[in-house]
Design a protein around this nucleic acid. Structure first.
Length: 644
RNA sequence: GCCACCGUAGCUCAGCUGGUAGAGCAGCUGAUUUGUAAUCAGCAGGUCGGGGGUUCGAAACCCUCCGGUGGCUCCA
């Protein structure tokens, strides 16, 4: 019998007969890992634990604690759900059941949509099957055999999937008890590895995401290796619900909606203060980074949109109307307007780069079903700007932008960010040399100034490559905010030129960029990130002045007036309530600073300072606290988590 | 747009299988004059999302419209 040499990372090499399973080797070399391993990696490739080894190999135990292992567990849980579902509803047809971040789903073709009670039933059945400890087997088969197998059991979606595969593909099916599913795997060795899971919700989903296809019923669920992790994840979902910007927006009176303009938020006085602070912060940066802000029209003759290509590509999202025999469109983007500004004058290479910024209101007719809070709206504005530059200025501009993005995310306390460079797609337009030139510059610039970034080949826009920034919020969720997109087609469409050193007309490159992105969406994301606890510079009410009794009402008013004169937004509460009640009310409004004034303070000309998360701090001179607050506001300091 | 669920007072919600609406908070009025997360009492407040239908009778059942929520391929 041939022997193979196998090692488990961190352990010595040992010899085994060929066709020994990874499982047996694990058991032999590292029994403690054997118990935990949901799968193995053989020479770095993720495999079932029962994989038979045919040659020398390096084997790694994969536990559910690792990302890969968790993925295997999630995927196996989706199979378990499909099995339970088939048992309870024999008529359902299974389709696909992949894993997503911390969750899995499975789509079923079923006559009646699932009810909440159905989910409970399915979950209960899953628990039963799990505890049976059915072993999970992989079998590889030819495409024809697989087709025959799934045809026989009436799983037409699996047959459809098989039709798309080629004869050369390795085709595998996994079985557990009475359930067999077409699946690439790998899976956990048996159903009792699946202990801590929960079904979350169900929803309709089109087969292959195409609205022309049949509507399937999708069930989402999650699973973890330990009860504690599952609980943590469920807590995270709870926390997310608590700080949902729609809920906070209502509670803190920041914005509202009305059915008469669905998808278009009304910013209330408090929300408007925040919105305007965001805008003026960005305007400060425009001064620093050399941008020129403009205000451009809201409505254009559709001739503009035909020329820009929006009519062709974006028409279904545009608000259009006819007046006086002319067709008009409400602008969904600022870029065409900015090209008109650019071409309104003769431009020299000495003028470049020209950076035109615009907070113009944009309107896009989003489908009714996709509207959501501030994150998906029909009316919004962006911290939008277009940079017109020569091809050899691209690198400098990108560096400039990376610096700006860093500065902004630091102010808003977004620690981690993920950067993605998307390159030339197949249906790209524009000069290929220019594409290559630009991509090289983008790559080099990113490499020079950023520690880490992903490249997504072929994911760029048809008009140019782009860099996207995803930030992680306080709950670890990713949000795409900033984007930098090169555009090689719009300058062509509008025949934009500049006169170069050699006296010849050249084509500028256009860079679309936004840092906060949509202000509305950013507002929502940031509101959830800070859970409504705004730093002082953004807080709609920066100070609440509370009188202990009506005896000090006049003094409280005086304090409020002095704050106002110092430019500090404040509210004075002189109602005949007990101080405890006023404090409670103010705490619930998440107001950062409270100044409590009683007779002692009135006599001494001081205020008693109470800060959110810190509580009673004690008496302090009003002039001193004003200086401190002004400093905190000017420096845009934020309350650190550690201060809580 | 499509599927499911939801829409009751300003807010959060109760209202069982149909018998013509209720609580807490907020609001208003009065009393209390208060020292770091809720003082007491009284009053007022609702086309039960809109429209249509079934019924002796509809917040509840049916239809329809409006709005909201979760979703609608990071591949078997």
């Amino acid at each position: 019998m041939t022997k193979i040499k196998v090692s488990i990372h961190g352990h010595e090499k040992r010899s085994y007969p060929t066709s020994t399973s990874a499982s047996d080797i694990l058991k032999d070399i590292a029994p403690q890992l054997f118990n935990e391993a949901v799968a193995v990696k053989v020479n770095g490739e993720l495999r079932d634990r029962e994989t038979l080894l045919m040659e020398d190999a390096e084997v790694e135990a994969v536990t559910a604690a690792s990302h890969d292992g968790h993925d295997v567990l999630l995927h196996s849980t989706s199979h378990l759900m499909a099995q339970a579902c088939k048992q309870l509803f024999p008529k359902v047809k299974v389709t696909i059941g992949p894993t997503i971040e911390n969750r899995f789903y499975y789509d079923f073709d079923v006559d009646e949509p699932f009810t909440d009670e159905d989910l409970v039933k399915i979950e209960d059945r899953m628990k039963e099957i799990a505890s049976e400890g059915l072993s999970i087997h992989r079998q590889e088969l030819s495409r024809n055999d697989a087709m025959a197998l799934f045809k026989k059991v009436g799983e037409s979606y699996k047959v459809e999937i098989l039709e798309d595969l080629s004869d050369d593909d390795t085709i595998s099916a996994y079985s557990q008890g009475d359930f067999t599913d077409l699946c690439r795997g790998p899976h956990v060795p048996s159903t009792d590895f699946i202990k801590h899971f929960k079904l979350l919700n169900s929803a309709g989903a089109y087969w292959r995401g195409d609205e022309n296809n049949k509507m399937l019923q999708r069930i989402y669920g999650t699973a973890f290796a330990t009860k504690k992790q599952l609980k943590q994840y469920l807590n995270l979902l709870e926390e997310a619900k608590k700080r949902d910007h729609r809920k906070l927006g209502k509670e803190l009176e920041l914005f509202m909606y009305n059915p008469l303009s669905a998808g278009s938020p009304f910013f209330l006085p408090k929300g408007t203060i925040i919105y305007n602070e965001l805008v003026s912060y960005i305007q400060e940066l425009y001064l620093k980074y050399g941008y020129e802000e403009v205000i451009s029209p809201q409505v254009f003759d559709n001739e503009l949109w035909r020329k820009s290509g929006h009519w062709e590509h974006f028409r279904e999202y545009m608000y259009n109307f006819e007046l006086g025999g002319r067709d008009f469109g409400l602008k969904p983007m600022n870029c065409p307007a900015h090209t008109l500004i650019y071409s309104s004058d003769l431009r020299s290479y000495r003028d470049l780069p020209i950076r035109i910024a615009d907070f113009g209101r944009l309107h896009r007719y989003e489908k009714a079903g996709v509207l959501s809070g501030l994150t998906r709206v029909r009316s919004f504005s962006q911290d939008d700007a277009h940079i017109f530059c020569s091809p050899d200025q691209i690198g400098t501009e990108i560096n400039h932008l990376l610096e700006m993005v860093d500065e902004v995310y630091d102010v808003f306390d977004f620690g981690d960010k993920e950067i993605t460079l998307s390159t030339r797609p197949e249906k790209a337009m524009g000069d290929e040399t220019l594409w290559n030139h630009a991509e090289t510059i983008l790559k080099d610039t990113l490499e020079g100034s950023v520690t880490d970034f992903n490249i997504e080949e072929g994911e760029g826009a048809f008009y140019g490559p782009k860099i996207d920034f995803n930030v992680k919020d306080a709950l670890g969720r990713l949000h795409q905010l900033a984007t930098i997109q090169l555009d090689f087609t719009l300058p062509d469409r509008f025949d934009l030129t500049y006169v170069d050193e050699d006296g010849k007309e050249k084509r500028p490159v256009m860079i679309h960029r936004a840092i906060l992105g949509s202000l509305e969406r950013f507002f929502g994301v940031y509101l959830e990130h800070c859970a409504g606890d705004f730093p002082l510079w953004l807080a709609p009410v920066q100070v609440a002045v509370l009188s202990v009794s009506e005896k000090t009402a006049d003094y409280a008013e005086k304090v409020g007036m002095e704050l106002k004169n110092a430019g500090i937004r404040n509210e004075v509460d002189i109602r005949a309530d007990k101080i405890g009640a006023k404090i409670r009310k103010t705490e619930l409004s998440k107001t950062n600073v409270m100044l409590i004034v009683g007779e002692k303070e009135a006599e001494a000309g001081t205020v008693s300072l109470r800060r959110r998360f810190l509580g009673d701090i004690g008496s302090i001179k009003l002039t001193d606290i004003i200086i401190e607050m002004k400093d905190e506001i000017n420096k845009k300091r934020r309350l650190k988590k550690s201060q809580k």
